[in-house]
Design a protein around this nucleic acid. Sequence first.
RNA 1: GCCCUCGUGGUGGAAUGGUAGACACGACAGACUCAAAAUCUGUUGGCGCAAGCCGUGUCGGUUCGAGUCCGACCGAGGGCACCA
Length: 847
Amino acid sequence: MSRYEPAVTEPKWQSVWDKAGVFLAHHDKARPKYYVLEMFPYPSGRIHMGHVRNYTMGDVVARYKASCGFSVLHPMGWDAFGMPAENAAMERGGHPKDWTYSNIADMRAQMKPLGLSIDWTREFATCDPEYYGQQQAMFIDMMEKGLVYRKAAVVNWDPVDMTVLANEQVIDGKGWRSGAAVERRELTQWFFRISDYSEELLEALDGLKDWPEKVRLMQANWIGKSRGLQFAFDTVGAPAGHEKLDVYTTRPDTLLGASFAAIAPDHPLARALEATNPAVAAFVADCRKGGTSEEAIETAEKIGFDTGVRVKHPLDPTWEMPVWIANFILMDYGTGAIFGCPAHDQRDLDFARKYSLPVTDVFEAVEGGVAVGTDAFVPLKSERVRYVKGFAGETIQTGEEAVATAIAYAEEKGFGHGVTNFRLRDWGISRQRYWGCPIPVIHCAKCGVVPEAKANLPIRLPDDVTFDVPGNPLDRHPTWRDCTCPQCGAKARRETDTMDTFVDSSWYYARFTAPHAATPTDAAEADYWMNVDQYIGGVEHAILHLLYSRFFARAMHATGHLPAKAIEPFNALFTQGMVTHEIYMTRDATGRPVYHLPEDVTDGKLADGTAVEIIPSAKMSKSKKNVVDPMSIIEAFGADTARWFVMSDSPPERDVEWTASGAEAAFKHLGRVWRLAHEVDTRGAGDASQDAALLKAAHRAINDVTLGIEGFAFNKSVAALYGLANAVSKSDASAGAKRQAMTIMAQLMSPMTPHLAEEIWAMLGGSGLVAKAPWPKADPALLQDDTIILPIQINGKRRAEISVPKDMPAAEVEKLVLADETVIKVLAGSTPKKLIVVPGRIVNVVI
RNA sequence: GCCCUCGUGGUGGAAUGGUAGACACGACAGACUCAAAAUCUGUUGGCGCAAGCCGUGUCGGUUCGAGUCCGACCGAGGGCACCA
């Protein structure tokens, strides 16, 4: 008998699919369409297990939907711009373009053997001029619609390399190459007006029913809508022009607990003081040290500086408070100035204790109030508290009520007004880097900043650049910057900033519907294929990428590139977990960790017998060497084994731990299925009386596998398929029934292990390709059980069970329960307090 | 620091508020074999001879009934606007 040989059968079926064009997406108006998209990869050069898992999930959905009769679009492309290509050029020489395209070729070659049902004719990379040229055209359209503007914004500045650093390149406040202390510096940058859409992006979240709740929550928190009070303090001793200090607060009810005002280091008042006061200038310079990330700012030590300027309390002009500059106040949020109420804000309290500022309780717990010590009293706003320093509303009220009445009070007295604020900031897209989409704008001495003429697009990146000097090669290119003004024809200078790579990934889903159109999209194609019915990717993109894409789809609609129905481009979203692996570690003579590859470790020991320390389940990363190369798994066991493994056991949204034994077990199981199919006619005598039971098992599997796929619980589909394999293996049913069961098995397995499924399908005489066969339907009559086992609980603990017809009325069930031996014994003649019968589920006897 | 998620046997995990541990890995025992591999069969949460008792990170609450809902805490992970 021959064996299960994926190395032979997998390439065979891939070539059959390819020749038949099975996976080409057809714009077929007669059929419903289904668009499955996995987040496209960055072309690092090697695929990893996370990719295998991500693309297998999408493939399962794509193949399943195709067999359900949908016209499926399942494309693939490359998120190809970005820093790693420039870093590679700096470290190893070569050109980012060559590095990127060669990586794409490598990764495509590694993905093809997985047998994914992808329409490769639609492939593109975001660094193709054909793609980014269309992106430039949309940028110009967005400029015309007023969705683009320039303003000053802070960047991480490396004073030694004289270059802008990404947050990732700032390590402990130092530049990653130079080691110099990073400073925050202002540059004029390009922005998209995403904040114009704050309200809409927030409200539309409610309509995204098939998105994970946690993603919607994270986005809502990120947009951060708040209602608060804005008012102006009168200042005392401030420079001219700063007679008022505008502040914003979400807790105006705590106004009588104020003990200081604080402004951001970049606040105009701080700037004015800095100009004349060297002590302020020194402090502000200190604040500007370190990176720009919110994390860096929030976790930095809280420092402050008393400016000597004072403000008058709006409720009591005789009450003056100091104005401090504090490094944790963000200029981008609210007015860049606050008042501190230490008793009810932990950060303010820490600040007040550090600088010996007063702490005044405004409210306390309704029952047993205690004065604030080292922990601020910050109850939920929905909780009722007793105001000891209130000025509007009831003494006992919730925070929400108190805030509303405080705003009303301020408006009535005329010292402030209610304001709705959003945390969401406009999207800064300028990057001072080479390997990105050039911003299609020209700086003309006469006309100012003007868009490039569309006829001149794409503005291509020049190839003749070098990376031997830090900084943006476009900025120092001898001729690329030179151009003529599209308005007046005079000599002008080209913009040298390129776009954030998030722009590239904010519309690729739309481009896949017409990847080679001469405009960004083709209306008819976009209308047929949009929206993405199922989007699949890592939860690490829950906020930025998805929010930017939602904005960009709206901008594309506003500029006529997408239909109105596509402003929420992703109907359903699924966020999958990571692939993890144990880390194997030893230590060198100095105690520093040394990591070892999984293939070098057997039974917890290295080849030389040294025991390794095992650190459980960590994200696969090259630096920790806990990586498994998908290619070696495919070579050893075949693509179907890798696919089967990543679909088994772990629910898709959770992390999956890669284990060598698990991979082997997956391979063994596929071999077993192959054997079961091979032996349908030869094993056992065959007992036709068992046919019905086997058929029932097969139909239960159809039901369970289908539910698993529909519900994104592929691990449950896999479990159901194990169940069916066990049923076939144990059954003595006739050859015909086994053949039928294994044919169903082939169909049910085809989304996950498509090559094996084709092989079995062909072996059993199925017609055509299983990839094109319609999905089997479960016969509802075969899913029913006539009698069920009903557990009996006594006081919530399971004590007995009875077997009853499945739709027996509750009254009759009660009789049977009370007649049960165990129940009689426990009751010992008494009557139960309560008898709860949950039909078809359980009985609880309360005594 | 802030936002979000997760925590169940030796392991991965299953369980519309209703029998905790489906399915699988591993382990153990057996069959086949000269032997091994492969394959097949069985056992497998802990304690206990047993009846039974205890068990879903910890503590508390709601409920006839909690892995599931609520609160606090502990631990791990993701994001924090220039990594993608």
